[in-house]
Simulated assay, not measured.
Amino acid sequence: MEFTGFPVAALDFYDDLEVDNTKSFWDAHKAVYDEQVKAPMVALTDALAQEFGDAKVFRPYRDVRFAKDKTPYKTHQGAFVGVAPATGWYVEVSAAGVRIGGGTYLADGSDLALIREGMAEEKSGKRLQRILSGLERGGFEIAGDRLKTAPRGYDKDHPRIELLRHKSLLGMKKYGFEPFVHTEELLVRVREDWRKLRPLVSWMAEQIT
């Protein structure tokens, strides 16, 4: 299937799902999900696979075993291309439109320690700062969970303490409802922005592989 954009029906589907997140709604609209959401996402990630790698298109079902929120379905469709543990590129469609990103979304103890070593080291830490500054100038938001204080073993006056507080680090960009998300131009935009995110993805992967 050739990618031609996410139909308006894909965003409308998630608008309605946020109002009625039930099995009865899902069963009645599963064909809309399959044809208007999942199929375009698979087509988009297939078109990007030769350059970036195969994507994992996430299942639409929430794991509610230990959650207070028992609504059964995710209110977005995401896909992820991994190059290292929890590190790679991301694309998502939801009622809020389309957004993309790249970096490390979750680091465990040992991987996080290695990432922080790279942030603290003068040469690699400054390289990361240059990468992030370039992304911000290019319209990306630098996101990720952060500690409120300095991580254990690092001085609060470290010149890169703001980086060291990160537990995850991502460059994100929201396309929202821009008209191009409904056309084949979205493929061009995602490819270009994933390329811009490659230095960040590569930096993060270098630390933990």
Results as ranks from 00 to 15, higher is better:
Phe3Cys: 08
Thr4Arg: 14
Thr4Tyr: 09
Ala10Asn: 05
Phe13Asp: 09
Tyr14Leu: 05
Tyr14His: 06
Asp16Thr: 10
Asp16Pro: 01
Leu17Gly: 03
Glu18Phe: 01
Val19Ser: 14
Trp26Pro: 08
Ala31Ser: 15
Ala31Arg: 15
Val32Ser: 11
Glu35Val: 13
Glu35Ile: 11
Gln36Asp: 14
Val37Ala: 07
Lys38Phe: 15
Val42Leu: 14
Ala43Ile: 09
Asp46Arg: 04
Ala47Tyr: 09
Ala47Gly: 11
Leu48Thr: 02
Ala49Arg: 03
Gln50Ala: 15
Val57Met: 02
Phe58Ser: 05
Arg59Thr: 13
Tyr61Val: 13
Arg62Ile: 13
Arg62Ala: 10
Val64His: 05
Phe66His: 01
Phe66Ile: 03
Lys70Ser: 01
Thr71Met: 06
Thr71Gln: 08
Pro72Ser: 10
Gln77Ala: 14
Ala79Asn: 03
Gly82Trp: 04
Gly82Gln: 13
Ala84Glu: 04
Ala84Phe: 04
Pro85Trp: 01
Trp89Ala: 02
Tyr90Leu: 08
Glu92Thr: 10
Gly97Pro: 02
Gly97Arg: 07
Val98Gly: 01
Arg99Gly: 03
Arg99Ser: 10
Ile100Asn: 06
Ile100Ser: 05
Gly103Ser: 08
Leu106Thr: 00
Leu106Arg: 12
Gly109Ile: 10
Asp111Val: 12
Asp111Met: 07
Leu112Glu: 00
Arg116Asn: 03
Arg116Asp: 02
Glu121Thr: 13
Glu121Asp: 13
Glu122Leu: 11
Ser124Ala: 05
Leu128Ser: 03
Leu135Ala: 07
Arg137Lys: 14
Arg137Cys: 00
Gly138Lys: 10
Gly139Cys: 06
Ala143Cys: 08
Gly144Leu: 01
Gly144Ile: 01
Gly153Cys: 05
Lys156Leu: 07
Asp157Trp: 12
Asp157Cys: 03
His158Ala: 08
Pro159His: 12
Arg160Trp: 01
Ile161Trp: 09
Leu164Tyr: 01
His166Met: 04
Lys173Arg: 15
Tyr175Asn: 08
Phe177Tyr: 13
Pro179Gly: 08
Thr183Arg: 10
Leu186Lys: 02
Arg189Trp: 08
Val190Ser: 05
Lys196His: 06
Leu200Gly: 02
Val201Ile: 05
Ser202Val: 14
Ser202Thr: 15
Trp203Pro: 03
Met204Ser: 05
Ala205Trp: 11
Glu206Leu: 09
